[in-house]
Amino acid sequence: MGTNRRKFLNSLLSIGSLGALSAIIYPIISYLIPPKIAEVKVNSLKVGPVAEFKNNSSKIVKFGRTPVILIRTVDGNFKALEATCTHLDCLVQYKNDTQQILCACHNGIYDLQGRNVSGPPPKPLNEYVVSTIDGEIRITSQDERS
């Protein structure tokens, strides 16, 4: 066996090892760098401090893949309901003048309990549980309470 061949083989081996090593290390390093959206989407969602919400106002928040409407009623209570209308999946909105939930697509109206009051919606809106922990509002999906 010629020394040239051995040299070639050894350099091939070291290049190969280096390549393999980098092929292993590169994914690991990129894995360890935390992604920009650092927090995991969870089944209980922190929405923000209570003080941020005025009475008689609402906000739509993204709860996993479902939008949820968080409403603070006139007397300061919180209510969270699924924000997709049961008719054709449009996003509902809170009407602070009539204190009802309106779907603008076909004028579907729900009361603050999420019950379909008038218009085309066939079913009430699903309810989410709102709890306040240390002045911060948390939304939990109902079946997670157990």
Partner: peptide, 27 residues
Amino acid sequence: MYYIPGEDNAYESVQFIITKVDFGWLI
């Protein structure tokens, strides 16, 4: 590094790993 045990977070954290973390799907 990313997994969070607990019924609220376990599924979501695994989903997070495979969709959001670079090469998380691979690991």
